[in-house]
Simulated assay, not measured.
Amino acid sequence: MTASLTRESSKGFVPGIRLSDREETAGRLLASSARKSYDPVVEVDWEAPVPDDKFGMTPEWSTLYGTALWDELTDEQRIELTKHEAASVSSTGLWFEILLMQMLLRDVYDRNKHSRHVQFALTEVADECRHSVMFARAGERLNMPGYGPPRYIHHLGRLWGHFFKGANAYAAVMAAEEILDMMQRDFMRDERVQPVTRAVSKIHVLEEARHIRFAREEVGRRLNGASRLRLAIERINTAVVVYFVVKSMIHPDVYANAGLDTERALAEARNNTYHHDRVRKSGAKLMTFLDTVGLIGGPSKFLFKKVHLL
C-alpha cells in the first residue's frame, strides 16, 4: 500500500493519483461475487423442521457455558437458551448491517460511479440487504423475539451513522463483522446446531470474506500517513464501536425468556472466564491487524479489554 492510494472525486479520478491497486482489488471481488453469491430466500430451506434436540448455536459459544449455572441446566434448557442467544446475535447482526449499508452509500455518494471500487461497494450493499432479511427470517423461523441492541445503543448507532466516515467507519465495520464471523464459522460446521442457523451462518461467512477483505484494504489505504491526532481519533472510534457491538451481542432479556434467573445468569456470564478466553483467542487475528495499522493504543486498549478482546 502506497501513499498514492488516496481519494477520488465525483468527476473522476483525481489527477496524478494512482488508484490501480484499489481498482484491481475491487475488480477481483466483483468477479468473486459473480461466481459465488447466494440468495437466502431460495438457498435456505425456511420450511424445514426445527428439531427439538438441536442447539440454537454452538453451545461452547453460550455466555453461560462453563459456569455452574450451565451445569445445572437440563439439555432442554440449554437448547432453549442457545436459541435465544442465537436470535440475539442475529438481531445485532441485522442492526449493524443496516448501519454498514448507510456508511457505504454515504462513502460512495461523491465518488466516480464508473469505478470498480464503487461498483463493489454497491454490490456489498446488495449482499447486506439480503443478509438483513436472512437474519430477520432466521429469528422468525426459530420463533424467537426480535432482540437487537439496548435502546441507548440503538440511538447511538443512529448518531454514528450520521457523523462517522472514511477509515474510522471502515475499521469499525470490519472489526464488528469479524467478531460475528469468528462465531459463525463455528456455527456453520457444528452438526449439533439448528439447520437454519448453520445455513444462515455459512452464507454470511462466505460472503463476508469479500467484505472484510474490501474493508481491510480501505483501512490500510486511508490510514497511510495519518497524523497522530487522526490515529488517536480513529482508535477511539473503532474501539467504541467494537465495545458497543460486543456488549449488544447477547441481550439481557434472553435469560428471562429462556426461563432462567436473570440476575444470576447475568452475574455468571459477566464472570465467565471460559467465554472471555474464547472471545480473546478467536479475536486474536483481528487484534493483530488493528495493532499493525495503528488502531490499538491509549484509551482504546481499555475498551478492548472490557470486552475481552485483549
Rank of each mutant, 00 (worst) to 15 (best):
L122T: 08
T238K: 15
D127T: 01
G56W: 02
M249A: 01
W61R: 11
G146V: 03
W160V: 07
A265L: 00
L309I: 05
E124F: 09
W61N: 15
H117Y: 15
A209G: 07
L122D: 01
K54P: 00
V108R: 05
N237H: 12
L260R: 08
S201L: 09
L5S: 04
A209T: 04
S20M: 12
S88G: 03
D75R: 15
I236C: 01
N224K: 10
G220I: 00
L286D: 05
I179Q: 03
H276K: 13
D291C: 01
K36C: 06
T63C: 13
M101N: 11
L100R: 02
E177M: 09
L156I: 05
V205F: 03
Y109F: 11
E178H: 12
R106Y: 14
A136T: 13
L180R: 08
A176E: 00
R78P: 00
V219N: 03
F214Y: 14
G297I: 10
P150F: 04
M103Y: 04
L19R: 08
A284F: 02
T58K: 13
H275Q: 07
Q194Y: 03
A226C: 10
N257Q: 13
A267Q: 09
P149Q: 12
R280F: 04
H114T: 06
E234S: 15
V42H: 12
A265K: 00
G139E: 02
R264S: 08
